[in-house]
């Protein structure tokens, strides 16, 4: 390529960049390119993913405690009302050999995992807490997840909030169905009676107020990922 060709090609591409920057940040054409980038980035992230990569909160880091933010999408804090809905139970179903319902006591009888880890929010903050719960991989073994299940949907009683994950991240040793936080019962603001918690996904992927875990052959979007946040949301 000689200098003249290089310059004209450069000029054309520069013009394209300026046009793209002039308020077209929500145009359809740029959206297509961004969707492509998101798909490619998901590929990169899934290639980088390792079960053995662990999150360790810095030993000098303080527990967030009361400063741990608590988001939900309902008008008011979602509370499981036993008089209306009967006793709470976690339903594990989909591509499993033995669909089951677990009461909180059932979950507590399974091997307990306690971990002090980061919570990474899509907004850019992180917060340290101690989580107690059952490894999702242990639950998966109890119900016998079938091999053709590639995705997991975590559903809640916080309106229609749910988020689906790739099964690899769900089976990460630090992915918990958590019922305890900072050595207390999980509080109402933080997703009681049980929630998903894992440092390997951004906060919005960690469904609170958990009701159902469904193993699926394909992804099933999610509350925030359907509104334009990345579906993968891995850390």
């Amino acid at each position: 390529m000689d200098r003249r060709k290089f310059l004209s090609a450069g000029g054309v591409s520069l013009t394209a960049v300026f046009l793209a920057a002039c308020g077209l940040d929500r145009s359809e054409r740029s959206q297509k390119l961004l969707d492509l980038a998101e798909r490619k980035n998901e590929g990169v992230e899934r290639t980088l993913y390792r079960h053995a990569s662990m999150d360790h909160a810095k030993s000098s880091a303080k527990l967030a405690g009361m400063a741990f933010p608590s988001y939900f999408v309902s008008q008011t804090v979602p509370v499981w009302d036993e008089r209306v809905r009967g006793p709470w139970a976690l339903e594990v179903s989909g591509l499993v050999q033995r669909p089951m319902r677990f009461s909180l006591e059932d979950l507590r009888r399974l091997p307990m995992r306690r971990q002090r880890v980061n919570h990474y929010c899509v907004e850019g903050w992180n917060a340290v807490a101690i989580w107690e719960g059952v490894r999702l991989s242990d639950l998966a073994r109890v119900v016998g997840v079938k091999s053709d299940s590639g995705y997991v949907d975590f559903q809640s009683f916080d309106d229609n909030y749910h988020e689906s994950w790739d099964i690899e991240s769900a089976m990460h040793p630090q992915t918990l169905v958590a019922y305890g936080m900072d050595d207390h019962m999980l509080g109402m603001a933080h997703g009681a009676p049980a929630r998903v918690h894992s440092p390997v996904k951004l906060g919005y992927k960690n469904t609170k107020y958990l009701t159902k875990i469904v193993f699926l052959p394909q992804r099933n979007g999610g509350y925030w990922s359907d509104q334009g946040y990345e579906w993968y949301g891995g850390t």
Binding site: A61, A64, G65, V128
Partner: peptide
């Protein structure tokens, strides 16, 4: 980090003027 102070930034919790930003909203900018 939530529940802590940060030593080395005098403008904690002061946002950048929106006119200097691009992408419209958090998800779009990401």
């Amino acid at each position: 980090r939530k529940g802590e102070q940060f030593c080395c930034w005098p403008w904690e919790h002061k946002p950048i003027p929106n006119a200097l930003t691009f992408g419209g909203w958090l998800g779009g900018a990401r």
